[in-house]
Design a protein around this nucleic acid. Sequence first.
RNA 1: GAAGGCGUAGCUCAGCCGGUAGAGCAACGGACUUUUAAUCCGUAGGUCCUGGGUUCGAAUCCCAGCGCCUUCACCA
Length: 506
Amino acid sequence: MSSTTDSFEASRTEKLRAIEALGIDPWGSRFDGHMPIGEVLRLDADLPEEQRPHVKVAGRIVLNRSAGKLQFIDLWDWTTPLRKNKETREEERGKLQVMVGQRQVGEPSWSLVKLLDLGDLLGVEGRFGRTKTGEPTIFAEKLTYLGKSLLPHPDKHSGMQDIEFRLRHRYLDLIYNPETLDRARKRIQILKTIRRHLDEKGFVEVETPVLHAIAGGAAARPFVTHHNALGIDLFLRIALELPLKRLLVGGLERVYEMGRVFRNEGISPRHNPEFTMLELYQAYGDYHSMMDLTETLIVNCVISLEHGSKLPYGDRVVDYTPPFPRRSYGELFEEHVGVAMTDVEGCRAAAGKTGFATANKHPDVIVHHLFETKVEPALAKLDQPIFVFDYPAALCPLTKRKRERPEIAERFELYVLGMELANAYTELNDPITQEQTFRQQLAGLPEEESMAKMDEDFVRALKHGMPPAGGLGIGIDRLVMLLTNTTTIRDVILFPLLRPEARPRS
RNA sequence: GAAGGCGUAGCUCAGCCGGUAGAGCAACGGACUUUUAAUCCGUAGGUCCUGGGUUCGAAUCCCAGCGCCUUCACCA
């Protein structure tokens, strides 16, 4: 805090005392029956003066102009629609104008008006119409002070540009950058759509533990914490998979969880240490049932955003009109790499050309390297989502193999513009294979990097009989990024992790 | 974790081949009963991220640290 910040705060605190001296509570209180500003602005503003509707609103003061014994105050609330800037034609934060006249409101309201600051919260009652210059306006009859802002708000025109400042003051970002609130709303809409769709399909939402004794279900470094009473370390979950599958054993035939998972890895425009996953499992289904479900799920989300079936992303437009193409991994591989994925030597040679060290590598690892370097860039050029199915088995330890081709795992990924949006399997329900796979995975790797931790209790659950099932995982943050045309994950998470702010004073 | 870029008033930004710290908005005082990024007159506001170095002199050049951004690695 600098001394100028202190002086801003001191000046506003003085006004707060002055407001108290008027007999007004500077922190406001319950204010019933106010109309959302967005609704007020939809009212007919052109009625004759005596027919003008009486309205009551509450909002944040975002602009404040005094003209002698008149004061023009612009209020904002979360329903205020965007409006077009006359010069730049860009959408900007909308607002509702309030006109306060000294004669019309009298005392103590007029004294209060003189003490208002940008950022204060104000309730207004009055008639809604137009001023002489044509601006939709509430002609104030009664003011109710609803709360003081002791700190100055950002510049009314330039707003907030500094990314760090926006992230550290997300509450201001929501007010002054309309896109931020819009994205938050779209995220909420997407989550709602997913829940409604799964509900309609007979799925139930469950809550499984966040604290795990064994961090399993994915390959990632966990966060470690400690339980004092039990005297044991616990891990924050890195996936939702294993508890949900236990529920399949328990007879919950269609379950899902949409929840936070935690991975102790790098932070980037696409990675936040905590992020939201959707995982769902359907008994007696397989990965093809998951493909159908994924398609309708995504299409419903797109439609729910009310932009038809096409959405922009950067300089691209993605067409989500179903059906999405479905291509097998091997087919795409041969098409773009030029050799069959079963041709071990051919793959080794092709990978060598890309500078990839192939020695001692599992053939499937080489294959997947080629897929990433040759096939994925081609997928990124498509203007519609594409399902890629039937993956090399070694890449997918928790996946059922194809009965007639055990080197192939029944898995698909949904790619949109090269991003992996969804990942699904026919789940492995054979406890013997599961246990072997766990052990194989554990064998060659340092413990902290092992692909899947041995979870004896999970294997025991499978031994009691898990139904054959399809399972699906979707990274919700990335889905929201894609559907809201957002390039950084921090902008689809309201409070992304930041290093704690250094405080200059002790 | 690595490399590159950035850090100046409450906010948005100039200034950067070294020579007294600048603007707009916000704030403060004043004028105005139809403004709307109101206007007009006036005033105040700075650890130029932090610490060290070079220099007669550093916001500016060098080194280190901190924070953020971008790219890469790990991963979703």
